[in-house]
Amino acid sequence: MTPAKRTTSADVARVAGVSRTTVSYVLNNRPGEVIPEDTRRRVLEAAERLAYRPRASARTLAGGRSDIVVLSIPDLPIGPSISRFVEELATSLAKHGLTLFTHLMSAHGRPLADVCATVEAAAVLGFGSFEPETVAALQRLGVAMVEPVDADYNASMGPIGRLQAEHLIERGHRRLGYALPAEPGFRQMAEGRLRGAAAACAAAGLPAPVALIADPEAADAEQAVSQWRELSVTGVCAFNDEVAFAVLAGLRQAGLGAPQDMAVIGADDIPTARFATPPLSTVSIDLAEAGRHRAEQVVTGLAGERVDLSSALVKVALVHRATS
Rank of each mutant, 00 (worst) to 15 (best):
E289D: 14
L104D: 02
M189R: 06
A267T: 10
L206A: 14
D75W: 10
A276V: 08
V243S: 10
A254V: 14
E33G: 01
G266L: 06
S284T: 15
R292A: 15
L212R: 09
P207I: 15
V316N: 11
F275V: 05
V86N: 01
V12E: 06
L176I: 09
N240Q: 06
A200M: 03
L180F: 13
V307Q: 00
T134Y: 00
V26H: 03
T8C: 03
Y52V: 06
A136V: 02
I78M: 13
P80Y: 11
H96M: 02
R40S: 15
A218I: 14
S83M: 09
S106D: 14
L44H: 06
E120P: 04
G192D: 11
V115G: 03
P216D: 11
D241I: 13
L112S: 01
I68H: 02
H103D: 14
E242W: 01
V146K: 00
V124N: 02
A238K: 05
D268Y: 07
V135E: 10
A238Q: 05
G17F: 00
P74D: 05
V299L: 05
I68A: 10
M105Q: 12
E191G: 02
D67H: 09
R174Y: 01
S19E: 03
E305G: 06
T8F: 00
H108C: 01
L168A: 02
E45H: 08
M1K: 07
A107W: 09
L76Q: 02
S57N: 12
T300W: 04
G304L: 11
R174I: 12
Y153L: 12
T91M: 03
C201P: 08
